[in-house]
């Protein structure tokens, strides 16, 4: 698939959205996608809605189904506030990391490092100044391979890339680094725009990589932050637990 069809596809608004993302406007996607849930419904109406069985938490429930959240008991889910409805093909995550843009830029610019951020990614082989080959695996070990080309590189500010024709899941990516106010470090924005055949964005990503794209982006930035700040990813894998817990793990 040619690059043009990615930006000027049949879906209305794709281009504007792309501009908003790449331009890095403060509103970005969030502004464009705001508000499928009226806030007014929440306030005092929460109790009434709960009592009347209104499915308040549907977006949350959906995130649970799509793997964005670990399963919780119904009662817990029902208590949660819904978040915005997400566009299935465009995903964005933001995080502030307590370090300089230079350090983050250098880390990302070395695409080989990205395997530390995306668990399904096995290797990124750099083939030339602008091209690289990405090797990943999906659930059950299914191999997925594609090629990417760098679009824009602005030192310490921005890296954008897009997939080449062979990609089963064509997408564009951009990562932006911006100094945060008040010595808080660097604001990092990761945007991934998927354009899969058939227009079933999120679902294809989930099928290929086992989790929703939105969760992948958020997790990737979280890992970046934790590696940069804490020097490790906190874990509880391998800690002791009681018999019933152990059985659960074995089963």
């Amino acid at each position: 698939m040619a690059l043009d069809t990615l930006t000027d596809g049949p879906e209305a608004g794709t281009t504007e959205r792309w501009v908003a993302i790449m331009g890095g406007t403060a509103l970005g996607l969030a502004g464009l996608r705001r508000g499928s849930w009226a806030l007014a419904a929440l306030g005092g109406g929460l109790f009434l809605a709960g009592a009347a069985g209104v499915p308040l938490a549907e977006p949350v429930a959906r995130r649970v189904r799509e793997g964005g959240l670990p399963a919780m008991r119904r009662m817990d889910v029902a208590g949660l506030l819904p978040t915005m409805d997400r566009d299935p093909t465009t995903t964005q995550a933001n995080v502030t990391i307590a370090t300089e843009p230079e350090k983050l830029f250098r880390f990302w610019r070395n695409f080989g490092n990205l395997t530390k951020l995306f668990p399904h990614l096995d290797a990124v082989e750099v083939q030339s100044d602008t091209e690289s080959c990405w090797k990943a695996h999906g659930p059950g070990g299914m191999r997925v391979v594609w090629h990417s080309r760098l679009d824009k590189v602005r030192e310490n500010e921005l890296i954008t890339w897009h997939t080449l024709v062979d990609a089963e899941l064509p997408h564009r990516g951009s990562v932006m680094f911006h100094p945060a106010p008040g010595g808080r470090g660097t604001e990092v924005r990761l945007t991934l725009v998927y354009r899969p055949p058939g227009g079933q964005g999120g679902r294809v990503v989930s099928r290929l990589f086992g989790s929703a794209p939105e969760q992948q982006a958020r997790e990737a930035l979280r890992r970046l932050k934790r590696i940069m700040e804490a020097g490790e990813l906190p874990t509880i894998d391998g800690q002791p637990r009681g018999r019933r817990g152990m059985r659960e793990i074995v089963e």
Binding site: M72, R73, G242, R243, R244, G245
Partner: peptide, 9 residues
């Protein structure tokens, strides 16, 4: 407090 799991110390 939800999200306790059997076996948690």
């Amino acid at each position: 407090v939800p999200t306790m799991k059997p076996g948690d110390i």
